[in-house]
Amino acid sequence: MSLDPTARRRRPGRSRAAGWLVAAVTLFAAVLALPGTASAAGHGHVTHPQLDWAGSTVRAHEGGGHGEPVVPATTQTPGMDVSAYQGDVDWSTAWNNGARFAYVKATESTTYTNPYFAQQYNGSYNVGMIRGAYHFATPDTSGGATQADYFVGHGGGWSADGRTLPPALDIEYNPYGATCYGLSQSAMVGWIAAFSDEVHARTGRYPVIYTTTDWWTSCTGNYGGFASANPLWIARYSTGPGTLPAGWGYQTFWQYADSGTLPGDQDYFNGAYDRLQALATG
């Protein structure tokens, strides 16, 4: 049986279209595989940054109790940390309830800024608190230095006014997928180092590192090389801060609960108020 001539002409056209489609899909996949793109190191996407804050992943992974812990024998200065999740904060009430410092989420990845940042960062300062800004890290969406630049450019700065804490890096369980963001332990150490070095270059201060001992051990191999420069902000919802990551002999801050008498998460600075002022002054 002879073939329809128009059918013979259509088949090559369909084949060429299919070839172009395959080529386009292949090219798109290759672009996504490049380092620093959204799919690199664990297919990172930031879809709910308003629900990510310092400690938002801790209870699900490590559990822990609510409320006031047993306070260590050394003097502790109470404070708090907040994010967009708290919205507008009543800072006068927080001050009257004992808070003397606050960390405020400024940014996440290179695409999100806290819409309540000004109210929280300036409001805490205006009632007399010592305040600082923190960045929620997503190491699978861009490099450490890139995120540090975004952070410093959107609230993560520092000034030697005695009222501004060093910028802080919140590095914890991935709220979007693989615990360690698809990075090897050595790659994670490199990412943190790049962030830390860039913050120092931009502000003159090495950032405080917020983490948990479990996450740090799993995702950095319990690397101890940051302790000499970076103050530790440990998260542990229990009666004490527990065993600390390698290198740190003590914590500078301890997030001991995710609810309590103050808005947001409950924290202690490990020392008297004048030592907190000294940390802020640099």
Rank of each mutant, 00 (worst) to 15 (best):
216 W>H: 12
9 R>N: 11
30 A>D: 02
139 P>L: 13
214 D>S: 14
134 Y>D: 04
231 P>A: 14
147 Q>C: 10
264 G>N: 09
243 T>D: 10
156 G>Y: 02
262 L>Q: 03
236 R>D: 04
244 L>D: 02
28 F>H: 03
143 G>E: 01
64 G>T: 06
217 T>G: 15
79 G>L: 05
93 T>R: 05
167 P>D: 08
129 M>H: 02
185 Q>G: 04
40 A>E: 06
143 G>W: 03
163 R>H: 13
135 H>R: 06
233 W>T: 10
62 E>D: 15
183 L>I: 00
221 G>A: 12
161 D>E: 07
263 P>R: 02
119 Q>E: 13
36 G>R: 07
99 A>D: 00
235 A>V: 04
54 A>V: 09
218 S>K: 15
117 F>C: 01
51 L>G: 05
83 S>H: 10
87 G>M: 12
264 G>I: 08
140 D>Y: 02
162 G>V: 01
116 Y>G: 03
178 A>H: 01
167 P>I: 08
184 S>R: 13
74 T>I: 12
277 Q>D: 10
206 Y>D: 05
185 Q>A: 13
39 S>D: 14
145 A>I: 09
102 A>G: 01
63 G>S: 12
258 D>E: 15
179 T>R: 15
25 V>M: 04
137 A>R: 00
135 H>G: 00
147 Q>P: 01
194 A>R: 03
40 A>R: 01
154 H>C: 06
27 L>W: 01
105 K>V: 11
198 E>C: 05
112 Y>Q: 02
238 S>C: 08
213 T>S: 14
79 G>T: 08
4 D>K: 09
81 D>K: 08
157 G>V: 04
282 G>D: 06
59 R>D: 12
8 R>W: 05
267 D>P: 00
99 A>H: 00
98 G>K: 07
246 A>V: 01
269 F>D: 04
49 P>G: 09
151 F>H: 01
79 G>C: 02
227 A>N: 03
211 T>D: 05
100 R>Y: 09
63 G>Q: 12
55 G>V: 13
237 Y>M: 12
269 F>R: 03
138 T>K: 02
181 Y>K: 00
3 L>P: 11
234 I>Q: 08
150 Y>A: 06
135 H>V: 08
107 T>M: 03
